[in-house]
Design a protein around this nucleic acid. Sequence first.
DNA 1: TTCTAAAACGAACGTTCGTGCTATATTGGC
DNA 2: GCCAATATAGCACGAACGTTCGTTTTAGAA
Lengths: 230, 230
Amino acid sequence: MKAGRGKVAQARKARGDRTRQAILKVAVDVASAEGLEGLTIGRLASELSMSKSGLFAHFGSKEELQLATVEAARDIFIREVIRPSFETGEGLPRLWKLCDVWLAYVRDEVFRGGCFFAAAAAEFDGRPGPVRDRVASIMKEWVAMLRGSIAEARDAGQLNADADPAQLAFELNALEMGANWAFQLYGDRQAFTRAREAMLERLRRHATASGLRLLPQTGKGRGSRASRAR
Amino acid sequence: MKAGRGKVAQARKARGDRTRQAILKVAVDVASAEGLEGLTIGRLASELSMSKSGLFAHFGSKEELQLATVEAARDIFIREVIRPSFETGEGLPRLWKLCDVWLAYVRDEVFRGGCFFAAAAAEFDGRPGPVRDRVASIMKEWVAMLRGSIAEARDAGQLNADADPAQLAFELNALEMGANWAFQLYGDRQAFTRAREAMLERLRRHATASGLRLLPQTGKGRGSRASRAR
DNA sequence: TTCTAAAACGAACGTTCGTGCTATATTGGC
DNA sequence: GCCAATATAGCACGAACGTTCGTTTTAGAA
């Protein structure tokens, strides 16, 4: 029964999906700047010039709206950070690309309020529930990806055996959060170069001779995306 | 006139100040866990079993309540982190103490929701106004203190001349925020030892021979406050 | 004990919140 | 062009929000 009307249901769903997407686009933008709780249904409706109830019907509850918003943000993050990094070969080059693109993703304000997930994590880390769980799992994915790339780089002989993937991933992630914090609170663009430098230092410290050749040269203005002015 | 009734006014003020303090004690606790916006006057009143209006009269507006809460949190931070660190001599020992005690301050849940200011900064970095400004200036104080201690350590010949105070302070602060993030979101206590290790690595890297003797030894379980289990 | 100013209260204000219900447009398949 | 499904709107609800008001309680000075 459910499968029988597959084609019809899919066609029928087209319009609703478009609105849903339009809603989520704004929702992600608002939530990144004012928080997932500050994301109000009335506010969202008026910003899209539609009725509260009409908008509400798409989600059924505020929590579902929040979850959908988180999912939409994840899609954007994958498109803007993960995918570009996977155009680079695995191991150290990809690891560095992940860090570099992440800094650009904050600096270029892919989300108005900086890193969507850093903001959501800070907001929900004290409120148990599905939203918190989802945000936590997404950020775990991210750190796991860093960790995995470090392990790959080590296995490929680009990082020394003494490089602890979990430890290094923790440090890289911390530097990212630090840069995000400084930029959001002070508009401090220098934070990106500071984070970049610190990341490179960490990577160089554990890099083998062949690994070193895969990292950007020392010095300023060396044409990397994250070090370029806007 | 105003000065003339000094003694009287002071006596008269006593009771009000006590309640005010009692209010702020709870306010800080609630705000650290649920945010300064989630800090609701009604909620706060019922938690203290007093009337909304009675509580409200102490502050005059929600924003004033938030500002007073931030100030109260700053007092606690100074008492719990800054003051203990100043029992140690300036330079590298104090710098390390600041980092170490900061980790303990998060781990021991001086505030229920972790670092009060990290949470407040994330919440208000997109909302211009007095609260944001105050939070920003307090965090600036903190980073400036790290930076100052680094400069002192360098001037005392404990850190090499190549140690950039601003850069190093950024990194130490980032590691702190990373540890706070991991602990709040995942309850991950290992984050503290990770941050600790990374901090020590950064300091050792720039330490002179005499500076090295002022830092804890390598290895596990070396009796530092932040590395002890609870 | 009496007086007075501070402190606390209780009730209500106007808004906005999230969430239901019911009715009307809009749409794609026949 | 009609039908059935879907999408949107309109309206109302109860609760909670920050805030104001006039009144009552309370504690310290006289």
